[in-house]
Every structure is written in structure tokens, then in C-alpha cells.
Nucleic acid binder design. Sequence first.
DNA 1: TGCCAGGCCGAAA
DNA 2: TTTCGGCATGGC
Length: 293
Amino acid sequence: MCGYKLIEEKDGVLIKTADGSDIIFDPDKTFDCGQCFRFNKDEEGRMSGVALGRAVGFKQHGRDGLYIYGASAEEFGPVWKEWLALDVDYEKVNRELTENAGENDPVIAAAEKVSRGIRILRQDRWEALCSFIISQNNNIPRIKKIIEAISERWGERIDSPVFGTRYSFPTAEALANAGEKAIYDMRTGFRAKYITDAAEKVASGKLDLEAVAGMNNDEAFNTLLTVKGVGPKVANCALLFGFGRFGLFPIDVWIKRVLEKYYPADFDPSVYGEWAGLAQQYLFYYERYLGGQ
DNA sequence: TGCCAGGCCGAAA
DNA sequence: TTTCGGCATGGC
């Protein structure tokens, strides 16, 4: 089910599923599961932040609804439906995921249950790549701080009637022009040279993210590895979250822990099929936020 | 205070 | 080819 009714409101647009079915989108979980670093719960109880150069906020509205603050009805289809992946039937995906995994999978069914409502977003390519370069050997609160800081410094100012002043994620050109020292001064540490290399490659066209989007997974992966500071984990996260490669399964310290804790040594995540990336995200959320409860 | 964080690089073995 | 120390910083 992916049809929606749109109701224009004064500060945004209310989305309801056309047939009253569960929308399966939990903003709190989706923006708190480490795929996107620019959203926080605000005083109104919305998950608000900046994406695609727009200030926006999300709040669940009953089981079948979603309130999108700072957006219009005509923006929904081309912008937010795509970005939030509301075109994907998660009821079906969740069913396929647990079926693919089979009955002998120790935890995916439990992880799916507690993680229900997480959607893998279709984020901006450059923002995803750059954000996950920053994420390496770092913790989520600090990753968010650094990203906010560089956005305030080198992003475009956005004056939103709903959210006030916010800043877009800086372009590769802006960061390339800023230079490594200025980026280092934003407390990015040893990542400054990696961010700079990525920004310079993208700004110069030496790395064409549009072209990467047209490549198969292996080609795209190997192309991203040409950036200094981009290894397997960062490349897979960039592709999963920024290029809609929902079948990729990035392995970080948390996922490694999950695999060691619950799965046999020879476990192959490709059993999760084209939704391995979602399985990964469910397992991450399950372990990180619930301690495997 | 010390350990760790959505890792990767470069050198050593 | 695989292993391993080092890395900047700050959250907890």
C-alpha cells in the first residue's frame, strides 16, 4: 500500500495512507538509528532538521498518518515521498525479510519487531558520503555536533517560518574551498584530510557521484574506495543511505558484536537478500538501543 | 579517569 | 596477504 491522501495545513502537510493502513514510519526511530545525523527532537515533539537544503520536521499522526512540518502538498510527491522512501511497501518488505532469513535466524524477527517503523532514507549522495567519513572511529553525538558545526560555517542559511534559522549541509565545493586547516579547526581531528580529499575529488569532478549512482554495487564500491579515508564500512554506508543500495550490509563495531553474539562464524548476511541493509539497520537498532532485550 | 566510538592508513611481518 | 599501532576528540 503506497497511496496517500494529502491535507494541506498552515505549517505543513498531513499525510494519511489512502486506505487507512499503518504508515509504518516512526520518525523517532528512523532519525535516531544512526543513518542520518541532522535531525533531533524539538520542543514541539517533532523530529526536525535539514535535508535537501530544506528545513523540515516530522511527527507521527496516528497509525496511518504523518505530519510534515515546513513542507507543502506539492512538495510531498517529488521530494519527501522519495526521501522518506514512502513509496516502499514496508509491510511487504518486512514479511520478505523474515521469510528470507528463515526460522533458524536467531534474532532478526525480534529485531524487526522492536525496530518496526525504521525506514532507510534516500539521502543526498554527497551528504551521506561526507557524513560517514566523519563518522569513523567517532560516536553519534559528536558526529552530529561536527556536522552541525560545518553546516553553520559553510552551508547555506535557511530562514524557515516554522523552524527559524537553519543551515544546509555544505556542498563539496564549499568544503574544498574552505581547505583542510579550516576543517581541522572544526574539531574534525584526523578526518580533516579525508573530508578535504573527498570534497576536492567531488568538486573537481574527479569523483562523479552521479556516475557512481549508475554503476553496479561492486564498481560503485571500488570507486568510493579511491577517496582517502573511505574504507569498506564508509563506502557501504554511503551506498546504502545515499544511493539507495538497500541490499548492502555495512559492518561496524556494533554489527560485528551482533554477529559474534548471535550468529555462527560462517554466517552470510546475503541471506537477507535485497533488503540486507534494512536487516542491518534493525540489528544495529536492536543491539545499540535495546541491548538485545 | 579511562575506555570507547557506525574505521582507516601505513608499516611490519 | 593479514595483522596491528596510531590517530584527534570528546561522550559517557
